[in-house]
Design a protein around this nucleic acid. Structure first.
Lengths: 222, 222
DNA sequence: GCAAAAGTGTTTACGTTACACCCATGG
DNA sequence: CCATGGGTGTAACGTAAACACTTTTGC
């Protein structure tokens, strides 16, 4: 029952990874290119031995030196035929804390760069769609999941977390309401340590009780 | 930049369609099989000429005689290798009003049947996952979109609509609150006609102002 | 006239929002 | 001692939930 129809030409299957980070008080996305070619996302080709998510994770490791970050399947696109063959690309998006990147221009590796979303280079149409969809999904998930925590390092302050929410959601939040709601999730615990940052009161450092876990929140709206 | 890596074996790409309807006061799903083989969803293979959604729509037309119904991409799965080749399947889910089906056992066509969700036959693991995911998506979308309207024929009563919500959401709803919220969406208009159904007051018939359109509702929760 | 589903408002409870001041530190 | 961001509670508001009776029809 699996595959015995006429005319199966063997379409190419790729995975594209839209990698976001929060840097310089902005949401930024990773793009790479070969030489002076067109910019694109880290891309892997599915060869038959690996699962889709593994293929995406491998592309992320190869092009950005990143492992173990949050990675979620986004949508599957049909790209215009290239070299006579159609390419189906399964888009993923990934989130990384700032500073987790080991970018480089080693030979055999893509030359990668972060782009803020308001200063992107020209992208092929399908890639633009992936990016739009990834951003919409990210903004939506802010409101009903704990996904924003994935942008932060192991320990962080509530103000840093609030800043992530404000940057992605593009709106300022009330400090007291924000802290109340975040703590009500019962996902954070105090480390007992503080961050001293300037000439003012030090901030408590928190950590996730279950790092890497992203919860869906029933009681809506953050 | 598209496809020139070594070892591209040309994976097979399929589309599986999880088709739901509300029948007999239950949510049911369409399965088909060849002879006494395993049950599966309507499936198309992507050959290179057609977009993914077209491929899914064609499978639905072929196996269920259905056109123009609500169809949404769900998730992409990696199936275990068959005949030595891996199959990537892009799952869709579709919704049809009861009675829109022209099932049959014509030669060359799948022998199809509706199954209520609590009396399913054995399914391969990946198909079970598709079904679970489709059902979860459907239940979630009840709450923040007008997707439930897609289960109803062109004209319908508010009680019929409420029944759809109750069946999919598996919970009884308050009649007055339900009607208030549905009408507040401003998506329905009165036809001026009534349905006489038994020895009791006839029910107003409504129609969608924009049939086929599924809106996302900001003001949460139905 | 009675059974059976259609239709209709108001009050209550709860969750969300708005809002202002004191605290701890470094220079 | 002053500038800076960290940290805290309460009242007002608006939305969602609970709730019961009248209407219209067919038999």
């Amino acid at each position: 029952m699996i595959a015995h129809r006429a005319g199966l030409t063997g379409v190419h299957v790729a995975t594209d990874v839209v990698l976001f980070t929060v840097r310089n008080r902005r949401l930024e996305v990773l793009l790479g290119r070969e030489g002076e070619g067109a910019w694109h996302f880290p891309r892997g080709f599915v060869t038959g031995d690996e699962a889709l998510a593994d293929c995406a994770a491998a592309a992320l490791d190869r092009d950005a030196g990143l492992r173990g970050v949050y990675l979620e399947q986004l949508y599957t696109f049909c790209l215009g035929p290239a070299a006579g063959r159609r390419v189906v690309s399964v888009a993923y998006y990934a989130l990384a804390p700032d500073g987790r990147l080991h970018l480089g221009r080693r030979p055999g590796r893509l030359a990668t760069r972060w782009f803020p979303l308001d200063a992107l280079p020209e992208l092929p149409e399908a890639l633009g769609e992936m990016l739009d969809m990834a951003q919409r999904r990210l903004v939506a998930k802010l409101d009903y999941s704990t996904i924003a925590f994935q942008f932060l390092p192991e320990t962080f302050t509530l103000s840093e977390l609030q800043e992530v929410y404000e940057i992605i959601g593009r709106a300022p939040l009330d400090k007291r309401n924000f802290r109340r709601r975040i703590l009500a999730l019962r996902q954070l615990e105090e480390t007992g340590r503080f961050r001293r940052n300037g000439s003012h009161r030090p901030a408590r450092l928190y950590r996730l009780k279950e790092p890497g876990r992203v919860d869906i929140i029933k009681g809506r709206s953050l």
